[in-house]
């Protein structure tokens, strides 16, 4: 470890119970689990499955409320996704949960061939995306979106908060095809209900307008982008935030429209800067023949350190404070 905290009390990794919420935040407990119970009560086709991680992906809420609608598959991710495919073939709408690293790295072939090729209505709901655990590379899915973006038929969602998760669940079920959602678990912040916002699958939404800087964000980075925008406002920098919860298919029309104005632009993602939001937008711009400077804020192209989340978020430049510093630094270099 390169950085050693010399203060008497060091922050800890807190891997299994990690909650992203700060003590002063409004939160909802287990929004995925409760949204699934509400949906399952209305639609008997909806089922939950997990590979020995119900408790750690919030599916235990469904398991406990409607036990007959839940299957425990055991610590067998390939069997989990295969079984989900088979249930979907029989007309059910399975939500299969595990950690993102296991669904994408370990069971990729099953997700690809049994679910995506067959275009089945299987919804993968996977926890610990990007840097949401300090446990180290075995549990940090820093490249899951890069792995999955090339998979035909698959819809990919990175929700910002509990509001996104609650509103996404019924839309994922209604979508006639496979989906992958990165799950925020435990006490999940409620942020987007402070704005005039509703989640629409496939749509990017401008959460906050601003004339000088545009932050295009996805997943939990939208919360930090909004906090950064508020801090920047106090520093006299008018900052817009465009939230892109659906990464595939990308809402190119909305992103193009927002990029049409002359602003400093940064992308913000809880993912390696390779193969995620930044790459998807760059891909679109090059295809359009547009030259545009965009600064990617995201995780580096390296295996991340183990440690406490606030420490790591600062270290890798994805904390709110580091985002603000980055914007101000870019503006200074622009002015120079």
């Amino acid at each position: 470890m390169s950085t050693v905290n010399q203060s008497p009390k060091r922050l800890t990794s807190d891997a299994m119970s990690a909650s992203l919420a700060r003590a002063d935040q409004r939160v909802t407990a287990a929004p995925l689990g409760h949204a699934l119970v509400a949906l399952a009560e209305q639609d008997e086709r909806v089922l939950g499955l997990s590979a020995d991680l119900a408790k750690y992906t919030d599916l235990h809420i469904l398991r406990d409320a409607l036990p007959e609608r839940f299957y425990q598959i055991g610590m067998a991710e390939q069997a989990l996704l295969g079984a989900a495919a088979g249930l979907a073939m029989e007309g059910f709408i399975p939500f299969a949960s595990t950690y993102s690293v296991f669904a994408t790295r370990r069971a990729y072939d099953f997700l690809c061939l049994d679910i995506a090729e067959a275009n089945l209505n299987v919804n993968m709901v996977c926890a610990l995306p990007g840097l949401t655990t300090g446990y180290g590379p075995s549990h940090q899915a820093t490249e899951d979106i890069a792995i999955l973006r090339g998979m035909p038929n698959l819809t990919i969602v990175d929700p910002a908060d509990a509001v996104d998760i609650e509103q996404a669940v019924p839309q994922l079920a209604a979508h006639d095809g496979p989906t992958y959602m990165r799950v925020l678990r435990g006490k999940v912040p409620r942020v987007l209900d402070e704005y005039d916002y509703t989640f629409e699958l496939g749509k990017a939404k401008l959460i906050r307008g601003g004339g000088e800087v545009l932050l295009i964000s996805t997943g939990l980075m939208t919360e930090r982008a909004l906090e950064a925008a508020a801090a920047l406002e106090e520093a006299g920098v008018d900052t817009a935030v465009l939230h892109v919860p659906t990464l595939k298919p990308l809402d190119e029309e909305t992103i193009r429209r927002e990029l049409g104005r002359d602003r400093l632009v940064l992308t913000c993602e809880n993912h390696t800067i390779i193969g995620g939001l930044f790459d998807a937008i760059a891909h679109m711009l090059v295809r359009d023949g547009t030259v545009r400077r965009i600064t990617p804020v995201g995780l580096p192209d390296e295996f991340l350190d183990a440690g406490a989340l606030p420490t790591l978020a600062d270290r890798y430049g994805v904390s709110t404070d580091k985002l603000v510093e980055r914007v101000l630094g870019l503006r200074r270099s622009q002015d120079a």
Partner: peptide, 8 residues
């Protein structure tokens, strides 16, 4: 693995 899901 798929057969399991179909059987369920």
């Amino acid at each position: 693995t798929i057969a399991n899901g179909v059987a369920l």
